[in-house]
């Protein structure tokens, strides 16, 4: 093995897909495994805060657990005049008020922590308290691999603050491989907004195509650079290929629909650790992105 190199460029890659179960975690764990031997100061960041699972593939110990908090309002009922202005300002129906009965309650699960109610209140009746919305957990393996997971607290409305905090916790790393949440809503946006390049994983089926189109359209509005990996190639039809051609989207690689890969993955093994061809393929994809989209000079 060649020695580790200190990179002269930084790069953040998000592995994403509109459809769930296309292979985001397979690709992000394998790509990270393939590149971390060579690229020092790299990290695998699991941004799927609603159900992080990248850590299942590594034998790692918890190094640090950072609490992520959000402000929620607390009503001082001595000062409150039950005018209802805070309730009117709240976009999320998180303040419940019945003025004639002098009842006011904060539904914390609905609060997004935007602070509009504090701005609305003219009577100083709203103070804010910190409430835990999740954690950013930093792990390291015996051989020095860095892994970070964003993990939201169950019952919390949105994973976005935890994903944001997870990004911050990796700001000292040169190479960040992000396992994105599925879909194209806020958690996905909050993940890919930090990325220099997005790898969209899809499968050659009508479902895969439909969700790929949504992801592509979202990334276009964000002016992101992206390419596509087709997983389970050999399955389904050719419409995903036709779409990529007609939209002039780069097909980075195809991963075959293969029983051996499925067996490795389903028994919690990193596919690239057991399949040299795939390991080489992931290194090749990474390096071509690194050469084209890496930020030289390490501005961070």
């Amino acid at each position: 093995m060649e020695g580790k190199i200190l990179t002269d460029k930084s790069l953040k890659i998000a592995i994403a897909s509109g459809k769930g179960g296309t292979g985001k975690t397979l690709i992000s764990t394998s790509m990270f495994y393939a590149i971390q031997e060579k690229y020092e100061n790299s990290v695998l960041l699991d941004c799927d805060a609603e159900e992080p699972n990248s850590l299942l593939f590594f034998d790692a110990s918890l190094k640090e657990s950072l609490k992520v908090v959000q402000k929620v309002p607390v009503i001082d009922t001595d000062k409150c005049v039950y005018c209802g202005k805070c309730h009117d300002y709240c976009e999320y129906n998180a303040i419940f008020i019945i003025p004639p009965s002098r009842i006011i309650k904060v539904i914390e699960e609905l609060c997004h922590g935007c602070g509009a109610c504090s701005v609305a209140c003219e009577y100083d009746a709203i103070i804010e308290k910190d409430t835990e919305v999740g954690r950013v957990n930093l792990f390291v393996t015996d051989n020095g691999m860095n892994l970070v997971e964003a993990r939201m607290k169950s019952g919390v409305m949105s994973p976005v603050p935890v994903i944001k905090a997870a990004h911050k916790s990796t700001s000292d790393k040169d190479i960040v491989i992000m396992d994105s949440p599925p879909g194209t809503s806020c958690p996905f946006i909050q993940t890919v907004v930090e990325a220099d390049y997005v790898i969209l994983v899809t499968e050659p089926t009508p479902f895969g195509l439909s969700d790929l189109k949504q992801s592509v359209n979202t990334l276009k509005t964000m002016h992101k650079q992206y390419g596509v990996v087709i997983n389970r190639a050999g399955l389904g039809d050719t419409k995903v290929y036709d779409y990529l051609k007609s939209e002039n989207i780069e097909l980075l690689a195809e991963i075959p629909f293969d029983k051996e890969i499925a067996i490795l993955y389903s028994t919690g093994k990193i596919v690239a650790a057991h399949d040299d061809n795939l390991k080489a393929l992931f290194m090749k994809i990474f390096e071509s992105i690194y050469n084209s989209y890496g930020n030289s000079g390490n501005q961070r």
Binding site: Y92, N93, I97, I98, I107, L110, M157
Partner: peptide
Amino acid sequence: PNKNADNGAGPASVQVVAD
């Protein structure tokens, strides 16, 4: 009024009937 609310239709509807 909360039939198509984005968030928190339940508590907002409690408010309607509790009023």
